[in-house]
């Protein structure tokens, strides 16, 4: 794990989540942001701001990225991914935006 192989996701309230590049690419939206041609600040700094995603939602999204990475193609029993009912709607909107 090095700085170059990580991505920094920043929530509406300015909280930062540092995750592996591969985990971030579970989201097609983020993958496209990071791999687009030209020198966007996103791909240069590896930093993406999400002014419309609140901190608890963004953290849950990051947890899901790792969950997805770990259990895709897994033959073991897959534990459920718990989502608190109060976050369900916001999380749905975030996942729709992130194409996850």
């Amino acid at each position: 794990m090095s700085k170059e192989s990580t991505v920094r996701l920043i929530s509406a309230e300015g909280f930062e989540f540092v995750i592996d590049y591969e985990a971030a690419c579970v989201s097609n939206t983020i993958k496209n942001m990071l791999s687009s041609q030209g020198s966007f600040t996103e791909s240069e700094l590896g930093e993406i701001k999400f002014p419309e995603i609140s901190t608890p939602i963004l953290e849950k999204v990051c947890q899901y990225f790792y969950y997805k990475l770990r259990y895709t193609n897994s033959t073991h029993d897959i534990p459920p991914f718990d989502i608190a009912p109060e976050y369900a709607l916001e999380l749905l909107m975030a996942s729709n935006y992130l194409d996850t």
């Binding site: 990580t6 930062e16 953290e59």
Partner: peptide, 25 residues
């Protein structure tokens, strides 16, 4: 503070190994 680092590890990793991973960040 306001930063959360998601660090991949194995149960057999030592705390020192975890700190070495953090050092790079």
């Amino acid at each position: 503070e306001k930063i959360t680092y998601f660090i991949q590890a194995d149960p057999s990793d030592t705390i020192l190994e975890l700190k070495e991973k953090l050092q790079e960040l």
